[in-house]
Design a protein around this nucleic acid. Structure first.
Lengths: 142, 142
DNA sequence: TATTGTTATACTCTATAACTATA
DNA sequence: TATAGTTATAGAGTATAACAATA
C-alpha cells in the first residue's frame, strides 16, 4: 500500500523530529542536567536502588548509570548505602540535599514541564498524551 | 486538587523517562548518527534550505546546525549552493551520495522505526501516537 | 546595524573496553 | 564463572562566545 507506507515513514520522521525538539526544549530549562534530574525523580518515587537496577530501569548501560550516580554523589545529592547481604552492591539513595534540590527544582524551574501539562493541555489531551507515551514506551522497548 | 497534581507530575516524569529511553533506543540502531539522519531526511522531504532555516526548523542554534552540516559535507552527503541573491547565504542540499545513503539506511537499518510502527502498531494506535506527537510538539514549542 | 555563517571551546550524555572485588 | 561495580576513553550532540562577511 503506497499511501500507507508514506504515512508510516512520515510518522517516523515526525516522531524523530518531535523527540529531538522536545529533548532540546527540556535541556534549555535551567536546573540540573536532565539525566541527573530524571534519576533524582526516580529515586524519590521508587526509593533506593542499586546501580544495576537503575540502569535496567532506564534501559541504560550500568557504566553510564555509574557516571550519573558519581556526578550526583560528588554534588552531594545522593549517597550509597552498602547492601549488608551482598558486599558487591550498594543502594543509591537521595541525601537531604538531594531532596531539597528536587523539590526546589520542581517548584521553581524544572516544574516547567508539569506546569505546561497543566496549563497548556486539558484533561482529555493529557489522556491522549498518556496513551501516546505508552505506545512510545512500547517502541523504545522493542 | 491533590490527586490532579500528582497525576500531572507523574505524567511529566513518565514523559521524561520515555523520551530518554526512546532517544537511547534510536541511537542504538546502526547507521549514521541520529541528528545527521534527521537532517538528511528533512532535506529530502522539504528540499534545500539555508543553515538558519534548518536551525529554526529544528529549534536549534545556527552554530549547532552548522556543525552537523559541516560533518555531513565532509562525508560528502550534502553540498552547498550559494544563494545568488544573497551572498551570505547558501542552500544546503543532498548530494547523490546523500540520496543513496538515505534510501540505503531507510531500507536496511534506520528503517527500524518505520518498520516497528508498521509491525507493532495497528492503524488506530498510529493515530493515537500521531495525536500524542502533536501535543508533544506543542509542548516543545512553548 | 542586522543578518548569515564560521570557528573555538566546553559541557552533557552515553557507549565500549578493560579492570577489581565479591558471589 | 558470573555478577556488581569502577575507571578510562571516545564519540554524539549541542550550547555559548567571539568573530568575519554581507546586507
Amino acid at each position: 500500500m503506497e499511501a500507507e507506507q508514506t504515512t508510516t515513514a512520515q510518522l517516523a520522521q515526525e516522531l524523530r523530529t518531535t523527540v529531538g525538539r522536545l529533548v532540546r526544549r527540556l535541556r534549555a530549562e535551567p536546573g540540573p542536567p536532565v539525566a541527573q534530574f530524571t534519576l533524582l525523580a526516580r529515586l524519590d518515587r521508587f526509593g533506593p536502588a542499586s546501580i544495576s537496577d537503575l540502569a535496567t530501569a532506564e534501559r541504560m548501560r550500568p557504566q553510564s548509570m555509574a557516571q550519573t550516580v558519581r556526578d550526583l554523589e560528588r554534588a552531594g545529592l545522593v549517597s550509597r548505602r552498602p547492601d549488608p547481604d551482598d558486599r558487591r552492591r550498594a543502594f543509591v539513595e537521595l541525601t537531604e540535599a538531594g531532596h531539597v534540590m528536587l523539590s526546589d527544582t520542581r517548584a521553581r524551574r524544572e516544574g516547567w514541564l508539569a506546569e505546561a501539562l497543566e496549563r497548556e493541555l486539558d484533561a482529555g489531551e493529557r489522556e491522549t498524551l498518556h496513551a501516546g507515551l505508552v505506545l512510545l514506551r512500547r517502541l523504545a522497548d522493542i
